[in-house]
Amino acid sequence: MKRVPMTVNGEKALRAELDRLKSVDRPRVIASIAEAREHGDLKENAEYHAAREQQGFIEGRIQELEGKLSQCQVIDVTSIPHSGKVIFGTTVVIVNIDTDEEVRYQIVGDDEADIKHRKISVNSPIARALIGKEEGDIACVATPGGEIEYEISEVLHL
């Protein structure tokens, strides 16, 4: 079985979503289905069909989350000695050499990646270029527009 890396916060978020689906959403949908059944003919009952469809989505998401959590390998980056190297879970401040634009990213698992919150997947091209490098190193990232060089200005273990 392939282990999927995940941060402590990522695992907590998935567990919270799973708990909500099981304890809040699933019972609510079951109650909606029971209520819709009381209205009579199920063939033409839109409420019943909508509730059954929603139940299918909830059950599918529960199975998906349980599968991800069973395969995850939680990595607590705060317990790893700070070596200055870019590793899974670290936050990296990089500077585009051509434009001097500074960007800060945290390298996280696939399920946690959220570019709006500056979290990039460990499997993304930029993270793969950064992993193993140290402060002051140059990382070349292949993009559709050509290679971009970034200097690693800071590596944080938050």
Results as ranks from 00 to 15, higher is better:
Glu102Ile: 15
Glu134Ile: 04
Glu64Leu: 12
Val77Trp: 13
Ala139Arg: 04
Ile148Thr: 06
Lys43Gly: 04
Ala31Ser: 04
Ser124Tyr: 00
Val77Met: 15
Asp100Lys: 10
Ile115Gly: 05
Arg52Trp: 13
Arg20Asp: 05
Thr91Trp: 07
Asn9Phe: 14
Ile80Tyr: 13
Ile62Trp: 09
Arg28Ile: 08
Gly109Arg: 07
Ile87Gly: 03
Met6Tyr: 03
Ala34Met: 07
Val93Trp: 14
His82Ile: 10
Gly132Lys: 13
Leu130Trp: 14
Asn9Ile: 06
Ala139Thr: 10
Glu154Met: 12
Cys140Tyr: 07
Val29Arg: 10
Glu101Cys: 03
Ser83Asn: 14
Lys119His: 07
Ile30Glu: 04
Leu21Trp: 09
Asn96Trp: 12
Ser124Cys: 12
Tyr105Gly: 08
Gly40Glu: 08
Leu69Asp: 05
Asp111Ser: 11
Ser70Ala: 14
Ile107Ala: 05
Ile80Gly: 08
Gly145Trp: 14
Glu135His: 11
Ile148Asn: 00
Val93Tyr: 04
Gln63Val: 07
Gln73Ala: 07
Ser124Asp: 07
Glu11Ser: 02
Gly145Val: 10
Leu156His: 12
Ile87Met: 03
Asp114Met: 11
Gly84Asp: 10
His82Cys: 11
Glu147Met: 03
Arg20Val: 04
Asp110Val: 11
Ile138Lys: 14
Cys140Val: 11
Ala36Lys: 02
Leu158Lys: 01
Gly60Ala: 06
Ala129Lys: 15
Arg52Ile: 08
Ile75Asp: 00
Gly136Asp: 10
Leu14Tyr: 03
Lys119Arg: 13
Asn96Met: 02
Gly146His: 13
Leu21Arg: 05
Gly89Glu: 02
Glu59Ile: 15
Glu35Gln: 08
Gln55Phe: 07
Arg20Cys: 02
Met1Phe: 11
Asp137Gln: 03
Ile75Pro: 07
Ile131Pro: 06
Arg20Ala: 14
Lys12Gly: 01
